[in-house]
Design a protein around this nucleic acid. Structure first.
Length: 338
DNA sequence: AAGCAGGATAGGT
DNA sequence: ACCTATCCTGCTT
């Protein structure tokens, strides 16, 4: 479900539309190492399959799960001329093919398209990929904001927000803990730092942190520019508005949080998913992960599934959540499904 | 071992 | 008062 997917691509694939506002350093993060972009749910802990263990700090984005598991059909492989059709010579061998599919154009192997037609399809696909990627990056930032309870604009962060963001970024890119080195900084300080400033505070992680912050800064800039106008985040915003309480000033309830995760199956489907949406029955697939997310959201680093499940059981009396008629491990049911 | 049920208590809003 | 976090005992899968 949330398997890392590798996209074979030449360097043009993740060039942004001219108007995105993403800077070169942030884009570099999006197309690391031979143009291989690895994607996955933001905080998953599965081992990497693309060799990033050996030093490729791939990008983890939930959006690609959706892109390439559901919409793979329209994607054309973008390959340079040295890559044989159906091959994939520039990639390391895929160790678990079923988990990291190579994206092929339908029928590319048997009956190749004529170059011009291929180019046209390619170009159109690239545009789609570009705009989708940008949209999904924004959506992911939005999600992170909700989970961390911080604003999307780094300029507005206080020191605590900066620490949360660092924690999140460490999580995302599996960096060592660097929070201490940035202890005294608020968002404005952070934004004014050059990559060299980052390097002085954290030699190993400076590049990733700086680039990731760049993405957030660009996103904030875009959001401001687009505010009021039409954005491509309608869907995400609609989903949030259904169950999100983080804007109301009231602390979020656990049942709301769970619903939020359930409403984003492409991001969290591997750790919590509906078994029967109509009846409100859901299953926690990765209890530790869900607990970790809840802990992040509530700023409770010691949160675990034992405690989370105790809180869920408090809902039994209140008639908010119950065990389904046929009780199963890690399966619960909303008493009043939406 | 991991999950489940529910009592007790503490702390925050 | 309400909601949750935390800790706990005992039971079940």
């Amino acid at each position: 479900m949330a398997n890392p997917v590798r996209i074979q691509t030449d360097s043009t694939v993740l060039q942004p539309p001219r108007s995105t506002g993403f800077t070169e350093s942030s884009l570099a993060l999006l197309k690391r190492e031979d143009g291989i972009v690895q994607t996955s749910e933001m905080v998953d802990h599965k081992p990497r399959l693309d060799g990033s263990d050996r030093g490729h700090p791939g990008l983890y984005l939930s959006c690609f799960d959706m892109l390439f598991t559901e919409d793979a059909a329209w994607l054309v492989r973008v390959s340079d001329s040295s890559t044989p059709a159906g091959g994939g010579s520039r990639l390391e061998p895929c160790q678990e093919p079923e988990q990291c599919p190579v994206i092929d154009s339908p029928g590319l192997g048997a009956s190749p398209l004529s170059p011009t037609l291929e180019e046209q399809v390619e170009e159109r696909s690239l545009e789609q990929v570009q705009s989708l990627v940008v949209g999904e990056v924004l959506k992911d930032i939005e999600t992170a904001c909700k989970l961390l309870n911080i604003t999307p604009d780094p300029m507005e962060w206080n020191c605590g927000n900066v620490q949360k963001w660092l924690l999140w970024t460490e999580h995302l890119y599996r960096l060592p803990q660097v929070g201490k080195a940035f202890q005294d900084l608020d968002g404005k300080d952070l934004c004014s730092m050059s990559e060299e400033d980052f390097r002085q505070r954290s030699p190993q992680c400076s590049e990733t942190l700086h680039a990731h912050l760049d993405i957030w800064k660009s996103a904030a800039w875009m959001k401001e520019r687009c505010s009021g106008g039409e954005t491509r985040m309608r869907e995400g915003e609609e989903l949030w508005s259904e169950a999100d309480s983080s804007c109301s000033g009231q602390p979020i309830h656990l049942w709301q949080f769970l619903r939020e995760l359930l409403l984003k199956p492409h991001s969290y489907g591997h750790c919590i998913r509906w078994l029967n949406k109509d009846k409100g029955i859901f299953k926690i697939e990765d209890s530790a992960h869900v607990a970790r997310l809840w802990g992040l959201r509530k700023n409770r680093p010691a949160m675990n599934y034992d405690k989370l499940s105790r809180s869920i059981r408090q809902y039994y009396k209140k008639g908010i959540i119950r065990k389904p008629d046929v009780s199963q491990r890690l399966v619960y049911q909303f008493v009043h499904p939406v």
